[in-house]
Write a protein that binds this DNA or RNA. Structure first.
Lengths: 338, 338
DNA sequence: TTTTAGCACTCACGTTATCCAAGTGCTAAG
DNA sequence: CTTAGCACTTGGATAACGTGAGTGCTAAAA
């Protein structure tokens, strides 16, 4: 009960909490001396710590962990919040990416933290088609489609002397050889076999290979959205510019972030401080959750905030949001699939 | 001479400069008392100011202005810098946008400030083609091309019940009625005539209209790139989070930034502090320059830094860069145009 | 055995005092 | 017109001090 009160107090006030204030607030009426004794025990257990020898206590990572695992009860979501979520997700979306991106924004607005969303994915995607669409005299658009329904495109200019026939031959080559293969394999083929084969049709294949590689890596990337980047400025207690910089840099490295999020196993999962694999985030906490979209796979939402975040509220919020989002996406697919 | 020395000193040290240090440094050998007298005059003229009653002097906006207009001589660019520029621009680019984007990055790296680049433009662009490319069962890609060579595309899902014929009819409608018109006019037509006409072919035209509107506004936007956003953290002396936030927000508002940059008339132009139209930037300085790409129009590069930036170096750098970039683009066009 | 009152002790933090270096304006002499 | 001299101002760094919130420990009470 005391640990719970300490966590609640500290996360809401940010000030180390002392025995007296605690005693006054507890449902039990015991004196501050009693509380002090208990606190000493909690400290021995490593659940709380002092900032200096005569300060109040703050929860340690272990303390937060225990709180989250055994004590916290998620706040029921406020009607107001659920309204905001519902109405924000209510728009007319013509592609899932829009919904996912909007989700990151909603979640960050609601919490004043930074939110991440990953598009639902069935499995590792495979190449299902590649095309070159001529647009003008020299302009061509490369379009790549995966079996997950992701589309990636890039326009580029082609060097003079290359004919439409040549391009068609190359496109045929790609489609014949690579359709159906996982993108990873295709990327690898691009390093090995493909260049040689393309030389049959193009004298200088570099341009084409570059563009093909670009759309390919683009498509192979996780569909990853960030909302509320600027909120980092609020709660990054460090005025340390360098730390902020590396944080921002990290958030733009899709791969790193994807590995930080991992594939959460639980519905809602909390990683606290040093539990996060990435060192840069060792003073933050991360709430991750999956959302499942029927047979269209599952995605991830996540929330990054200070270690001393109000967990009960945030866990409740993320829990509610994952359900709303899943529902919204199921509706989306129901409409377009049929 | 004294003003010049004050600006040079202050921009490099950041500390208000006093009469004694100044006297020691000047090519003339006069005493500090003399310098003090002159400084009093400069202050009366409003060219320099004190931070407090017994402090050294710092240049005022007016002082910087005078310095930039009459005293500064741009540093010749360092061989090292020119190498960096040349080699960074030397890559294999298949589209101008890549070059422009890279430029922003180079410029920001070189200066540790924040850089902006605008793609060269001939004039206001006009719609030169619109297409819908079917990709899968329900997926369609909308592609819009302007006469400036800009391509904008979006994929989206179409509601069941819409046939290929219907879409083709709509595409024909768009192309018949709107090709050749300035994008602005097209955007306006989208508010007025078009919706009604589209209803002839689609019962629920909202989806299509949304996507068409999206690619259209996207294409109508200035092609605008920012490099070194994070550098703002270095020199924003304000630890004021809110100010930083509004700065970042501003930089993402393409329209606002475009209006801040204006269409510079001179080759290299300097706007200091409150001279910048936007209030948020009143404590910063902006160096803008145009670069001309033969008959492919002209673009803008810009550098945002603190008011106390080393102008001579920055002006020299931007001047050199605009030429390198122009040359690089001319080469680019020469290769792909022929 | 558990709880409590009492008390000496610790430490961060805000306030105040003090000193110092760097600078200024002004006056009178060169 | 320039300069030496001097009294005066100011921000910033450092130390001294008091205060309040908190602690641990001991001994008495429950």
């Amino acid at each position: 009960m005391i640990l719970k009160a300490i966590v609640r107090d500290y996360t809401s006030s940010g000030v180390p909490v002392g025995s007296k204030a605690l005693a006054a607030q507890l449902p039990l009426h015991v004196s501050s001396a009693t509380v002090r004794n208990e606190m000493a025990t909690l400290e021995d257990l490593g659940l709380i710590a002092k900032t200096h020898s005569s300060s109040g206590r703050i929860p340690s990572v272990k303390g937060y962990r225990y709180y989250v695992d055994h004590l916290v009860q998620p706040d029921p979501i406020k009607p107001n919040d659920i309204d905001i979520i519902k109405s924000s997700l209510d728009g007319q979306f013509l592609k899932i990416d829009e919904i996912i991106e909007t989700s990151a924004r909603i979640l960050s607005n609601l919490t004043s933290y930074t939110a991440f969303t990953l598009k639902p994915e069935l499995k590792e995607s495979r190449l299902s088609g590649f095309r070159l669409v001529p647009l003008g005299k020299r302009q061509v658009m490369a379009v790549l489609v995966t079996d997950n329904g992701d589309v990636e495109s890039q326009t580029f200019n082609i060097a003079p002397g290359i004919t439409g026939d040549q391009l068609e031959a190359v496109v045929r080559l790609i489609n014949d050889q690579l359709v159906g293969k996982p993108l990873k394999d295709v990327l690898q083929a691009l390093e090995t076999d493909i260049p040689m084969q393309v030389t049959q049709y193009l004298q200088k294949p570099e341009g084409f290979l570059k563009i093909f590689g670009d759309v390919l890596t683009q498509a192979a990337k996780e569909r990853f959205y960030v909302g509320g980047r600027l909120n980092l400025l609020n709660f990054s207690d460090a005025n340390d510019v360098d730390e902020l910089k590396s944080l921002y840099t990290l958030m733009d490295r899709t791969d790193d972030m994807a590995s930080v999020l991992g594939q959460p196993t639980d519905h809602v999962q909390v990683k606290i401080g040093s539990e996060i694999t990435n060192d840069i985030l060792k003073d933050y906490s991360l709430i991750t959750a999956t959302y499942e979209v029927g047979d269209h796979g599952k995605g991830v939402i996540a929330l990054l905030g200070p270690t001393r975040m109000p967990y009960s509220r945030m866990i409740g919020l993320v829990g509610a949001f994952r359900q709303e989002l899943a529902q919204r996406l199921i509706d989306y697919y129901r409409y377009f699939d049929q």
